[in-house]
């Protein structure tokens, strides 16, 4: 019975999303839509990264590398899959949807594999050493793509068509994946695994003493978050119509960290807000011209000094929280 209700809820959410996407696409100028698309991609990145950086407390500053792996895989698979799919079901929205999602899944899988390769040796380390190792891996991945001639090298990959990769990244698909990723991450976070992950964050030695398989769980969280970055990369590739290694440099990883910091480490709600904030704030600050990035950096420092726990801390926005709030009680942390 329960799965029936859940299925109905999921269907309703997707239908609502489809309707909303249609309305927005009809009524909003493309610029605002682009910002919304980037915001959605950011949310996927932030929610995924938050699982490892926030919930588990293992800091990665190399996630741009996983995003790159996902983006390149997704772009390449999409290019090679699309003709076959179009041949089988006829070209059109359905064929595009099949190709996109198959490509995204393959991007997620390869990014997850990369996550295993990087995570297994790295996650023995802690704190800033782990951070630096992931930074190193992220840069190595970028350099490999930069020298990968078949994928365009420094010029990047945009398929055979001069107009670039097909524009499959629509509002509906981005936000459908946002829902999927948030659901998965939420379910992991509030499961027994999630409790163990938080235990690792709070005190790894104590967690180990309580027979928590810390290394295995850390790798699981790391791989999940790499897979989310891969999905985001694939969506980004088909939004940009082309990708190049420079799109995934260290700055991208830092942007992701800023997103989860602004919202509050360890909070899914915070990651969502941070992802949206990053996309919207950088665009709103355009009027500042060359002072924009100076202010962006200043903002980051000030948040760290004045409110290091971010906007939400580790609190979550949930119906229960809202109800308690309405009654005037203290929110549960």
């Amino acid at each position: 019975m329960r799965w029936l209700v859940r299925g109905a809820v999921a269907a309703a959410v997707l239908a609502g999303l489809l309707g909303l996407a249609r309305v927005i696409e009809g009524g909003l100028m493309e610029y605002a839509q682009r910002v919304l698309l980037l915001a959605g991609i950011n949310v996927i990145l932030a929610v995924g990264l938050n699982l490892i950086n926030g919930t588990t407390g293992q800091f990665s500053i190399g996630h741009a590398g996983f995003m790159a792996v996902g983006a390149y895989t997704c772009a390449w698979v999409g290019q090679h899959l699309a003709p076959g799919v179009a041949g089988a079901v006829g070209a059109g929205a359905i064929a595009d949807a099949i190709s996109l999602n198959a490509a995204l899944v393959s991007g997620a899988v390869t990014a997850a594999l990369a996550g295993v390769i990087v995570g297994v040796p790295s996650l023995r380390l802690k704190g800033d050493y782990l951070a630096i190792v992931t930074l190193g891996f992220g840069e190595i991945i970028r350099i490999v793509f930069n020298n990968w001639k078949a994928l365009g090298g420094a010029t990047g990959y945009s398929g055979e068509d001069p107009a670039g990769l097909p524009a499959w990244t629509t509002l509906f698909w981005v936000y459908a994946w946002v829902v999927v990723i948030i659901t998965v991450v939420r379910n992991v976070t509030f499961s027994q695994t999630g409790r163990s992950l938080i235990a690792i964050r709070e005190d790894e030695v104590a967690a180990e003493a309580m027979a928590t398989p810390t290394t295995r769980l850390k790798v699981v969280a790391f791989v999940l978050s790499a897979a989310a970055a891969g999905v985001a990369g694939g969506l980004f590739a088909h939004l940009q119509a082309g990708i190049r290694p420079e799109d995934f440099r260290l700055e991208k990883s830092i942007d992701m960290i800023v997103m989860i910091i602004v919202g509050g480490l360890g909070s899914i709600t915070g990651a969502v807000v941070g992802g949206v904030f990053m996309a919207v704030a950088l665009e709103l600050m355009r009027d500042l011209e060359e002072y924009r990035l100076v202010l962006y950096a200043l903002l980051l420092i000030l948040i760290m000094i004045l409110r290091p726990e971010g906007l939400f801390g580790s609190r979550e926005l949930s119906f229960g929280w809202l109800r308690r709030k309405a009654r005037g009680g203290e929110p549960a942390s």
Binding site: F59, D128, I257, I261, L300, I301, M304, I305, P308
Partner: peptide, 27 residues
């Protein structure tokens, strides 16, 4: 100001200061 905060807060502050000085330098 962040010396006694959790380990990662100063790290991110450091990244922020680095970005700030780079962009100020360009300016």
């Amino acid at each position: 100001p962040v010396r006694n905060a959790p380990r990662l807060t100063p790290l991110i502050t450091a990244i922020g200061v680095s970005l700030l000085l780079q962009n100020l330098g360009l300016l």
